[in-house]
Design a protein around this nucleic acid. Structure first.
Length: 855
RNA sequence: GGGCGAUUAGCUCAGUGGUAGAGCACUACAUUGACAUUGUAGGGGUCACAAGUUCGAACCUUGUAUCGCCCACCA
């Protein structure tokens, strides 16, 4: 691909520098130029390849990395040729007049442009029929009228019934063409009569073939007008650009009195991907792959589930294309790529050397020149004829000259000048890269592969072709084709803020290199992962990248904090032996996160996987675990400290692993930096974490603690109590369990909720803010600190919220149909919730009464 | 014309039948404390619209509107 792209760039450079074009320059000289300008012309591509680690030394004709591949490509061509699946055909192709090469349908982009539709009259040659003197046709491309071979009308169109078979005179070219009947014209549209230019329009081509109408070429490879006996175009059109020819045709048609009007019309025009100019349908000889035959097993593979698309909706797109597949044109009129392994020589029709058929040529398809010559010698019977390989193809006229000059003692042989479509070789990627056709160890190990990850826009270019090629060439013991991969993961396309695909030509791209320079590679990768939702494209917003850059910093700082507290990786750490509730809690949360991340990766839900890791690291580990560890680290219980350190080290290790797919560079670095003894392996080779500790009691205790702290903080904030002010906590109605929990977590509560001293009493102290946490009411004595109207308002608001929820839940449970139809679990959940709400409502009401009584 | 997808907080987007979510932005407070690339608390949503299915709908069905993409395109 880089080679082809380079050629495109070099051709543009040639044009800009007013150098002769490639065709005038010759192949040899052109390759020199590519070589000479490699840095400035192909430098970008070259650098990209270097980044990818490709070893390319820009040796002539091909990259060194392609050496083995080239052989495989030529082998495949020869095999398919021998099987009759590759053939040469004269057909209409999409032609790029700038690069002067055939391109495939999917390299053509249709755009709506403002255009015109002109009407011309073609007079009937033998005078009026039914009072009709002329037939009026409409066209958006007036210049093509010079190549018309017929005028078509619908057989059911009564207006023209009696005109079918009559001749009309073509203005300017002065040819007589027939009026024919065909299903193609729409009687409702325009005049119902359509001009047929078989050599320059795809629909017309089909009509012309069906009706044996001659195809009359009007243009050369650069889309400049040509003058031939067949097209009878006046001499002064010769060499005119198609758009200049259009103007001239319009002028002359008007002068001749055949102009019948014009209207504005938006027309869809096909543009070439690479050149950006309007493509021209062109009648040419090209090599084709019988894609219909090759596609059948590839369709079956998806139909029968041996290859799956993720998300599945892309299978429709795949089928839609594969079932309507056209012959695949693989010739490209370029000079940089895999050259088609076909040689031609004069055709022979008998035993005698004299029996040359001057109009036609014999084809020798072989993987190398030597082998082609062997075949050629065989063909020419070794009748004392010496084969001479010549550079340029020889036409039938040239052949006569050759015979005049050399006699029949020397036979010219020449190679097809065209190269293969890049996707022809790309389609072989799953096996050609592994040393095929040799049965190498690599091939045995890595073929078939498992998942191909790509964007939907190359399902056809690449995915479908890999499947066709693999199924055809790679067979199992029973001779059944092998799929190159079992899953095709379609990742989202990154679009710009308006939803358009980014492209060089539109200039709307966000350069990933710039984003990486600004935010870091891992940040960009993590952002793309967390935004990679199945079935939806990504509109990339750089502020999101900044957000996830901060996440990386957070992890870095967490590691630094751990280091400062002598958190050290302990190779003998056993999670199941951990004792403290806090540590058992984080291990439990870790287990849950491991499951969540793993399952989502396995389901290709990378956004959910990275999101779960993000939440665990920031909102669980950093926000709570590390905060709760601070009093432990600051305390003097050496055993507790040691266990906390070992646990934190273990959790960090698991975090690095979970995040490694999404932030490989940073986690690999942290993995190495935090090693106390050598890790013995890279993080990317380390075993994926598995869930272990599941301690719901510990989880409940710490989650209760978190709830308590949040409750106190919330009240403090709402009551505008300065964070610097520490205050006592008075607990009313605590159960034995709550008392025990408070006892073990006193230090944590005091630190995180800015509390000084926890006591238990039977009734709330006068002037307290009161919070209901579980069965207990937690009070902050605020007498003299705040206005109690605020506390009343706060409690009333809370009570209103509870009332609202209570109504909803009790309403549900009062509904007989709900109780009768809803699943048990849901009903139980609602009952539980109702009980909780009821208890809380009671406590909050009591608290409110108390505050009011104080007032 | 056919197909596919989207419409949820100011913005970018998660959420496929059971308590409406994230990041950014916004408001208030906090700074020798791992981290201001920060912390705490908070405000903000008739889930485009309408009808239906259901005990229950952002989610399922049908229709409407708007937007996007793909395919085929009236010469």
């Amino acid at each position: 691909h880089a080679g082809i792209a380079t050629q495109m760039v070099v051709e543009r450079q040639l044009a800009e520098r007013n150098e002769p074009d490639r065709h005038a320059m010759g192949r040899e000289k052109f390759v020199e130029k590519v070589w000479e300008w490699k840095e400035e012309s192909g430098g970008l591509i070259f650098n990209q390849l270097k980044r990818l680690g490709a070893s390319c030394d820009w040796s002539r004709e091909r990259f060194t990395m392609d050496e083995g591949l080239s052989d495989a490509v030529l082998d495949v061509f020869v095999k398919l040729y021998d099987e009759g699946l590759i053939y040469k055909d004269k057909r209409l192709v999409n032609w790029d007049p700038v690069f002067q090469t055939a391109i495939s349908d999917i390299e053509v982009e249709s755009k709506d442009v403002d255009g015109h539709m002109w009407s011309f009259a073609y007079p009937l040659v033998d005078g009026p029929v039914d009072g009709i003197e002329e037939i009026v046709i409409a066209t958006t491309r007036p210049e093509t009228m010079l190549g018309d071979g017929a005028v078509a009308v619908h057989p059911s169109d009564d207006r023209y019934k009696n005109l079918i078979g009559k001749m009309v005179r073509l203005p300017i070219a002065e040819r007589e063409i027939p009026i024919i009947a065909d299903e193609y014209p729409d009687p409702e549209f325009g005049t119902g009569a359509v001009k047929i230019t078989g050599a320059h329009d795809f629909n017309d081509y089909e009509v012309a073939r069906r009706n044996n109408i001659p195809l009359i070429p009007l243009m050369d490879g650069e889309a400049k007008m040509i003058v031939t006996p067949e097209n009878n175009v006046p001499e002064h059109y010769k060499g005119l650009d198609r758009f200049d020819a259009r103007k001239l045709v319009l002028k002359e048609v008007e002068e001749l009195g055949f102009y019948r009007g014009v209207e504005d019309k938006v027309i869809a025009q096909p543009f070439g991907d690479r050149s950006g100019v309007v493509i021209e349908p062109m009648l040419t000889d090209q090599w084709y792959v019988d894609a219909k035959t090759m596609a059948a097993p590839a369709i079956a593979s998806v139909k029968e589930g041996r290859t799956k698309f993720v998300p599945q909706m892309w299978e429709n797109t795949y089928f839609n294309w594969m079932e309507n597949i056209q012959p695949w044109c693989i010739s490209r009129q370029l000079w940089w790529g895999h050259r088609i392994p076909v040689w031609y020589g004069p055709k022979w029709s008998g035993d005698s050397l004299q029996a040359i058929e001057f109009g036609s040529f014999e084809t020798f398809c072989a993987p190398s020149e030597e082998e082609a010559l062997v075949a050629a010698r065989k063909y020419y019977h070794g009748k004392g004829t010496e084969l001479v390989v010549v550079d340029a193809p020889i036409s039938s006229v040239g052949m006569k000259d050759w015979v005049d000059t050399h006699g029949l003692q020397k036979m010219p042989i020449w190679r097809d000048p065209d190269v293969l479509d890049t996707w022809f070789s790309s389609g072989l990627w799953p096996f050609s890269t592994l040393g095929w056709p040799e049965n190498t160890d690599e091939l045995k190990t890595y073929f078939p592969t498992s998942v191909v990850s790509t964007a939907f826009d190359i399902i056809f270019f690449w995915v479908a072709r890999m499947m066709m090629m693999s199924l055809h060439f790679m067979k199992d013991e029973d001779g059944k084709g092998i799929e190159p991969f079992h899953t095709v993961f379609m990742h989202p396309l990154v679009r710009d803020k308006d939803g358009a695909t980014m492209s060089m030509s539109k200039g709307n791209g966000i350069d990933p290199l710039e984003l990486m320079d600004e935010y870091g590679t891992d940040s960009l990768r993590f952002t793309l992962a967390i935004m990679a939702v199945q079935g939806r494209d990504v509109k990339l917003d750089p502020t999101r990248v900044a957000g996830y850059r901060n996440f990386g910093t957070k992890l870095w700082n967490a590691t630094r904090f751990a280091e400062m507290n002598e958190v050290k990786h302990d190779p003998d750490f056993n999670p199941d032996a951990v004792k403290s509730q806090l540590n058992r809690w984080i291990l439990t949360e870790l287990s849950k996160s491991v499951v969540e991340v793993t399952e989502n990766i396995e389901k290709y839900r990378f956004n959910d996987a990275s999101g779960a890791a993000y939440k665990f690291v920031w909102n669980t580990f950093c926000d709570w675990h590390l905060e709760l560890l601070k009093p432990v680290f600051a305390g003097d219980d050496a055993a507790a400290k040691a266990e906390a350190q070992a646990t934190a080290a273990y959790v960090l290790d698991q975090i690095y692993k979970l995040l490694h797919p999404f932030m490989p560079f940073m986690t690999e670095e942290l993995w190495a930096e935090t090693a106390t003894t050598p890790r013995g392996e890279l993080l990317c080779h380390a075993a994926w974490p598995t869930p272990n500790v599941r301690d719901e009691a510990a989880a409940n205790e710490i989650n209760w603690l978190i709830g308590l702290v949040q409750e106190i903080r919330s009240v403090r904030s709402e009551m505008n109590i300065k964070p610097s002010l520490k205050m006592p906590l008075v607990v009313v109605g605590a159960s034995a369990e709550t008392k025990a929990r408070l006892e073990t977590n006193t230090a944590a509560v005091e630190r995180l909720a800015r509390i000084e001293g926890i006591s238990h009493t039977d009734s709330a102290p006068e002037g307290s803010a009161q919070m209901v946490v579980g069965e207990a009411t937690v009070c902050l004595p605020l007498k003299g600190l705040v206005d109690f109207a605020d506390e009343i308002a706060r409690l009333e608001k809370e009570l209103a919220g509870i009332e609202k929820d209570f109504k909803i839940v009790s309403g549900k449970l009062a509904n007989e149909k709900f109780v009768a139809n809803a699943p048990e679990a849901i009903i139980a959940e609602n009952r539980e919730r109702l009980a909780e709400l009821e208890a809380k409502r009671e406590k909050v009401s009591e608290a409110l009464e108390r505050v009011k009584s104080f007032g």
